[in-house]
Design a protein around this nucleic acid. Sequence first.
DNA 1: CTGTTAGCGCATTCAA
DNA 2: TTGAATGCGCTAACAG
Lengths: 338, 338
Amino acid sequence: MSDDSPQPRTRPATRSDVARAAGVSTAVVSYVVNNGPRPVAEATRARVLDAMKELEYTPNAVARALRLRRAQAVGLVVPDVSNTYFGALARELSNRAFEAGFALLLGDSDNDIERERAQVDSLISHQIDGLIIVSLDAGSDGEVGGTPTVYLDQRDQPSQRTVVVDNLRGARIGVEHLVGHGRRRIALLGGMEGSPGADARFRGWQAALEDAGLPHGDGLVCRSEFNRHGGYEAAVALLSRSERPDAVFVSSDVQALGLLAAARRLGVSVPDELAVVSFDGTDDARYSDPPLTAVEQPIAEIAATALRAILAPAEPPLHETVQARLVVRRSCGCVEPA
Amino acid sequence: MSDDSPQPRTRPATRSDVARAAGVSTAVVSYVVNNGPRPVAEATRARVLDAMKELEYTPNAVARALRLRRAQAVGLVVPDVSNTYFGALARELSNRAFEAGFALLLGDSDNDIERERAQVDSLISHQIDGLIIVSLDAGSDGEVGGTPTVYLDQRDQPSQRTVVVDNLRGARIGVEHLVGHGRRRIALLGGMEGSPGADARFRGWQAALEDAGLPHGDGLVCRSEFNRHGGYEAAVALLSRSERPDAVFVSSDVQALGLLAAARRLGVSVPDELAVVSFDGTDDARYSDPPLTAVEQPIAEIAATALRAILAPAEPPLHETVQARLVVRRSCGCVEPA
DNA sequence: CTGTTAGCGCATTCAA
DNA sequence: TTGAATGCGCTAACAG
């Protein structure tokens, strides 16, 4: 650590500083930095490497991006990063992208379609190599401008690339579990209408109840945004109705947290009076009271698949579906083992 | 939406496409895009605007960044975005940055100092205009390379710009509240040693107990990472000790969630047998069971201040401190109003 | 008020 | 195996 050099360098070293220091041309520096496309003699390479270290040279990602027309970066747009599920997704993506040498540009659309669009435009202008988006609008189209894009929800337009969890089947499994517990009035605490994921989960709830010959009318449905507060408000409304449900399928963990708080406040015991199954299966479900039986999304798989879809040279299938699985805990009435 | 034009355009329009279409020079296009630095005649401006719309022109942020040496982007590095507090911070920052015309590059350091360093380097190579970081290492130094950086935690080096919540005072207030409830064995469930925020909260806990003449030995301290699982494990250990504490000050909401789960599992009632106050005051605290009395960080203020510190032309003070405030809920033994 | 032009740092073609 | 030279799209002198 003999860092006694004066080093009055005011601006970071560029490729030509390195070239000069190593006594080679700038092209050669590029060749060694990128391992190609031309071979470099061992001795020369060593000199360049030395010079790089000496000058603490770091390639300028922006210049590189301009030249290559791609930034070694991917974009992620979600409705609300503070939602535990999206947070976990962002984390997974940030780490995987980093390991693949990509930066992650994050856009929070704040549950606003206009803002979503603006965020997307902004990210695209930054020359991202690919965009991963949880969109608020299943019908949006032209927003991708040549940038490989993968949606993490069902789309109206089948031409758009998607990686989606099987929402319908997941919801179905969750509801069927409630049916198996002998519950008869199984409500849905869903996401806002129009949101692609929310709609599919609604249909799964519906289908399971139809198959079981149980009621699934509007009286059993309430909707809210995907956050704790929304879940709380909707649950209060739901539990105050004249004929109270004896179970609820909740379309996200954060909403379920709100519902749990509402149930406590109203003196409704979970799972005895009200069995609950939620969707997502994040840590929120694991550490709540009672712990939530949940349809768990394979976040790591989703992240990996989405990244591959965007970055892989070989074209993967346009639509990839991953499966959720039911993780039984206590909120449904099952006794947790151990 | 008469989108019937053939539009075989293969690459996005550039500034010179616009210039050609509008019959002006590229400079003029720049002047209208940037509203300066030279004035443009109204009529000319209108022609340019038309051409831009016609060609669906979007400025290339990367070229601009190369030229200007700044990317209209800020970087954020946190140990774990899936922690509700960091998620909320990221959300706040993403939205504010967006409104100011900046993109947000997110780096998750995954609680790993090496990775933190690598993420920082990566972000800097992307020419970010500023870096906001929650560092794992209070002593790190040279990592900033001319990029304005603000740390959201205390630093060993006073030359580094910081925006920090008053951790010591916050912890103190939280612990004093517990003392006021007549608790005598007030434990600390803290973050890992060496982490700047965790250490300050530890000292606050210590100081409050010292002032109150209460014990604050190692027997009352346990530490874990800032996540639910860590909090759970540490709490199990703590609550299994021969002389059990009658209160705990927890240094983050997510750890407190873990502690709450552990207490339930062990049959320790909160707040009766164990009063709890946590730090952060995110939605996690509001919707837990029981709701957590918490020392609440002013996330919006932190985000705004940090952004300003980085972007403002006028140099703000090198160190800015914001205050946390105690939000009383039920976990401490107070009866929540209403 | 508007046009010409020189780079920002890098990848790469073409020539040596 | 290496070097010289071009241009990615944009900004901002500088010159009209």
